[in-house]
């Protein structure tokens, strides 16, 4: 990325215009990839010889778990940009992405526990992955709660940035300590995602779903950011023009 693009991104108006050009393509890609991946994963992928058809949950569980983790890293990167370069758009991105990331974490947890029932026989085990995912959810809740508790918009964004950075430094420590705790108390007998010996017709749809989830995340975050930009800039001439354009007089009672 060149520096001119970086500086341009700081301008809300420029972002609003360019994102309206990106959105349709991204949305089409997301729908196409998600539909292809789901149909392939549900209908065409072969059955797992150990877990039977319950393994098909992998096609939503793993992408959601990916997004949950990348989402928090996204928050931290946005926080860093916001603190170092004081870019308003990074503030917007951080607060727009936090709820979406939290929803992805919820999805990963719920699908993981639904998958756990036929494979482990219980809805929940204190397995290292599930436990770290639960802690990640709490970290997301912290960022969201802090952002909502502080009324001043700029200080809320800065406080969330600091918290996201502190969280991202802690994530590896939490992850390793939870893994260590897990091996100490109950040696892992069965892990959900076995890497070896997965044939191409099994992992190709998974790859498609992962990319599709990323596109979906981008679409939702862009949509939320566009709304937030409109709200922040509501006094400027370009936002008024945009409102005139999208809401002609006759649509109002």
């Amino acid at each position: 990325m060149t520096w001119t693009l970086f500086h341009k991104l700081g301008s809300p108006k420029w972002f609003y215009e360019i994102s309206s050009r990106w959105l349709p393509g991204l949305a089409c890609a997301a729908v196409l990839l998600l539909v292809t991946g789901t149909v392939w994963g549900l209908v065409f992928a072969p059955e797992d010889y150990q877990q039977g058809n319950s393994f098909r949950i992998i096609y939503i569980h793993v992408p959601a778990a990916f997004l949950a983790q990348s989402g928090y890293i996204f928050l931290a990167v946005a926080g860093l940009i916001s603190l170092v370069w004081k870019m308003k758009l990074a503030d917007v991105a951080l607060q727009a992405a936090a709820p979406v990331g939290a929803w992805m974490t919820v999805l990963a947890l719920v699908t993981g526990s639904i998958w756990g029932k036929p494979t482990w026989g219980t809805w929940w085990v204190w397995d290292a992955r599930l436990t770290s995912m639960l802690i990640l959810l709490f970290l997301y809740f912290g960022v969201i709660a802090l952002g909502q508790a502080i009324t001043n918009r700029d200080s809320a964004a800065k406080a969330c940035s600091v918290l996201a950075l502190v969280g991202v430094v802690n994530i590896p420590i939490i992850k390793y300590s939870v893994e260590w705790w897990n091996t100490l108390h109950q040696p892992a007998t069965f892990t959900l995602t076995r890497k070896p010996a997965m044939p191409a017709e099994m992992w190709l749809p998974l790859l498609i779903m992962v990319v599709g989830f990323y596109c979906f995340f981008a679409v939702v975050v862009l949509m939320r950011m566009r709304l937030a930009v409109l709200q922040r800039e509501s006094r400027t001439a370009w936002v008024k023009a945009e409102i005139e354009r999208t809401m002609p007089k006759r649509t109002l009672r």
């Binding site: 802690i135 709490f138 970290l139 809740f141 912290g142 709660a145 802090l146 508790a149 918290l163 502190v166 969280g167 802690n170 420590i173 939490i174 300590s177 939870v178 260590w180 705790w181 100490l184």
Partner: peptide, 20 residues
């Protein structure tokens, strides 16, 4: 309450190691 919500997740490694 917000303080607890923000900080307790970060306390987990210390809790695991200390009680361990």
């Amino acid at each position: 309450l917000l303080l607890a919500l923000l900080i307790l997740p970060l306390y987990i490694p210390v809790l695991i190691l200390g009680s361990g």
